[in-house]
């Protein structure tokens, strides 16, 4: 191979290395791509409370995730108006907890997660003996909070 050709190959190789350097970082960067819409940032302004299942038999454990709260703040958890515990949100303003319905009679439970009057969200779940017992999804972690579910009259939310 002539000297010129050798140099040409070298230069081409270095050029390709520079061009592909970013691609080599793929394992460290990942390739998660999400649509960029207002819902992506809606939580920045509005707290939201979601639950793994809406209905289950007494003894079920319902997994709740609150998002869009202030980061690193204590949120109070209410079930039908009664304080059942608290959870501290993480650096992203997300808090997770589990409501244990062991011994709770059939009916609706309104669960509220609140840091202050303006940052509050609720979700209603149904305890029904005719349904199967539900459990938190695998890998879900959070404090387990018990409730009697019968301390106040129901429901908070009318349908």
């Amino acid at each position: 191979m002539s000297q010129e050709r050798k140099e040409a190959v070298q230069r081409l190789g270095i050029t390709l290395l520079v061009l592909l350097a970013g691609v080599l970082l793929l394992p460290y960067v990942g390739s998660a791509r999400a649509a960029i819409n207002w819902e992506l940032f809606g939580d920045a302004y509005t707290p939201d409370l979601s639950v793994s299942d809406n209905i289950g038999a007494p003894g079920s454990q319902f997994a709740f995730t609150g998002s869009g709260y202030q980061p690193n703040r204590l949120a109070i958890i209410f079930v039908n108006g009664q304080v059942v515990g608290g959870v501290t949100t993480d650096g992203n303003g997300t808090g997770r907890f589990i409501i244990d319905t062991t011994g709770v009679p059939d009916g609706e439970l309104t669960v509220v997660m609140e840091t202050d009057a303006n940052v509050s969200a609720f979700k209603t779940i149904t305890v029904d003996s005719a349904e199967a017992v539900v459990a938190p999804p695998g890998g879900f972690s959070g404090p387990i909070l018990g409730t009697t579910g019968s301390s106040t009259f129901l429901p908070f939310v009318q349908r």
């Binding site: 109070i76 209410f78 108006g81 509220v112 009057a117 509050s120 609720f122 908070f156 939310v157 009318q158």
Partner: peptide
């Protein structure tokens, strides 16, 4: 209101109306 607080829920029921709740 979009998300009533606990204090409001103790005084009023929340009826879903579109994306918000009517307090009664």
């Amino acid at each position: 209101i979009n998300n009533p607080s606990m204090a409001l829920l103790q005084q009023a029921t929340a009826v879903p109306v579109g994306p918000v709740y009517k307090l009664e």
